[in-house]
């Protein structure tokens, strides 16, 4: 229904965002000025009809849900934690990692005992709450914003729930993975209203990106 408008795409700042941009570029949606460097956060090309924004990874879903961006790429961890009302159109299969619970290597059977609430330090309280609720385990959430691995070492929590890539950070801090919770990867998301008014164009982008993903 819409046609002339620029398609706004929010990308996560950092290494993952650069890889995602590479996929869009391969799909014929490149904007040469992206490579100019500097501190600019928006790049557009009127001929291609696309404008990219670099935003903090955890903010991508908000930009898309609120319609500031028509499309965006966000980690599944962010989508599960903040539950934005958006369409999740494609698993890009990159930025793969997992959400897991972890604790001290000498952690005992207390994890499953149910005798006391488990103290869980995490940046992802909703994911942790849902996971333990699904198995009827009562927990006490301790919301932290960083250096989560410190919490069990200093006795602040019994375990942590956090993203694990290689497991190296956990090992260096004497922690082990207790249980995997969910697989994480980057997802292509769309604002629901934009998807309706720009259906052909958005589905065209999704199709092109899916083809590049298959090739890789």
């Amino acid at each position: 229904m819409r046609s002339e408008r620029m398609l706004n795409i929010a990308l996560p700042k950092g290494r993952l965002g650069e890889r995602v941009y590479g996929i869009f570029e391969s799909a014929g949606l490149g904007v040469p000025s992206v490579n100019d460097g500097g501190r600019r956060l928006t790049f557009e090309d009127a001929d291609v009809g696309v404008r990219y924004f670099w935003v903090k990874p955890s903010d991508v879903a908000i930009y898309v849900e609120r319609g500031a961006a028509d499309l965006g790429v966000a980690g599944k961890d962010i989508l599960l934690e903040y539950r934005p009302d958006v369409y999740e159109l494609l698993d890009l299969g990159i930025g793969k990692c997992r959400m897991a619970s972890a604790g001290k290597a000498d952690f005992n059977s207390y994890y499953d005992s149910g005798e006391f609430p488990l103290r869980v330090a995490t940046k992802f309280p909703n994911i942790a709450r849902d996971f333990f609720a699904s198995r009827g385990r009562s927990i006490d959430i301790i919301k932290l914003h960083g250096s989560i691995e410190l919490a069990p070492l200093l006795g602040l929590s019994d375990i942590i729930v956090d993203i694990v890539e290689t497991g190296e950070t956990l090992r260096e801090n004497g922690l082990i993975v207790i249980e995997d919770i969910v697989e994480i990867s980057a997802r292509l998301i769309a604002n629901k209203a934009s998807h309706k008014f720009d259906f052909e164009r958005i589905e065209g982008v999704v199709g092109s990106v899916a083809k590049i993903k298959e090739k890789k």
Binding site: K192, A193, S194, F197
Partner: peptide
């Protein structure tokens, strides 16, 4: 129902 320019129903 959706109207163009509003990002939600």
């Amino acid at each position: 129902g959706f109207v163009d320019g509003v990002p939600e129903a």
